[in-house]
């Protein structure tokens, strides 16, 4: 039913989304914790930077990245000093773009969870003699597990749905940068509506399932809070 090219794009998209989510789940929690607790004056500035991809047209990000990746500029030049080809039109370039693009989707749910975390739990556990890391693994992480799941799922789903940025810096290379959304656009532009229908349906079904899982998760948590 699906062609080899379709499978390749699906695999590439899953690879991109998984890697991006992994990186975000490492970077986002400390950042979200800092944003939730810090009282410094530069916090609104950092908070705005993180939220920017939510409101900025993807074309702006794509345009700046294309310039930044160019060998004429610092980032591109530095990259080329130990690599053969430029960051633009490469899988690595897409990972960098996706991390930036999906950052707010992971940071914001975590940040709000951290803000609402009752401080008394941490204080009680401190009096029990729990160290910093013990508190993290025994208290914070288990209590906020649903928020972590939601953050990860949103980051993953959002990366899968990325289009504008990839269109600008991807170069449409099968197996390297031709992700599902781009291949779909490719099918539509070449008037291959049957293939376009298949891919669209896959993306629709996937996005819907992710959202159902996320909102189901939220509902469960709400019930638990209400029953407590």
């Amino acid at each position: 039913m699906l062609t080899a090219g379709d499978y390749q794009a699906i695999w590439l998209t899953l690879k991109l989304a998984s890697l991006t989510t992994l990186l975000l789940m490492i970077m986002a929690p400390p950042l979200a914790w800092w944003l939730a607790r810090s009282q410094t004056k530069i916090r609104p500035l950092v908070e705005s930077l993180v939220a920017l991809p939510l409101i900025l047209p993807p074309t702006v990000l794509g345009f700046y990245l294309l310039i930044a990746f160019s060998p004429e500029h610092f980032l591109g030049e530095w990259w080329l000093s130990f690599n053969d080809s430029s960051l633009a039109f490469s899988f690595t370039g897409l990972v960098i773009a996706s991390v930036i693009y999906s950052l707010p989707f992971v940071v914001q749910p975590l940040q709000s969870a951290f803000v609402h975390l009752d401080k008394s739990y941490l204080e009680v556990s401190a009096t029990l003699g729990y160290g910093k890391f013990e508190r993290l693994y025994k208290i914070i992480f288990p209590m906020l597990l649903p928020s972590f799941i939601i953050a990860g799922a949103l980051g993953f789903a959002h990366t899968i749905g990325e289009f504008g940025v990839v269109l600008m810096i991807g170069g449409n290379i099968p197996g390297e940068t031709q992700v599902l959304s781009i291949l779909l656009f490719d099918h539509v532009e070449s008037l291959e509506y049957a293939s376009a229908h298949k891919l669209s349906f896959i993306l629709l079904a996937f996005s819907m399932s992710v959202l159902v899982v996320i909102y189901g998760c939220l509902q469960k948590r709400q019930q638990r809070v209400l029953n407590a």
Partner: peptide, 9 residues
């Protein structure tokens, strides 16, 4: 054209 102009290709 833009890919070449931005020196990425």
């Amino acid at each position: 054209y833009q890919f070449v102009e931005s020196k990425n290709v």
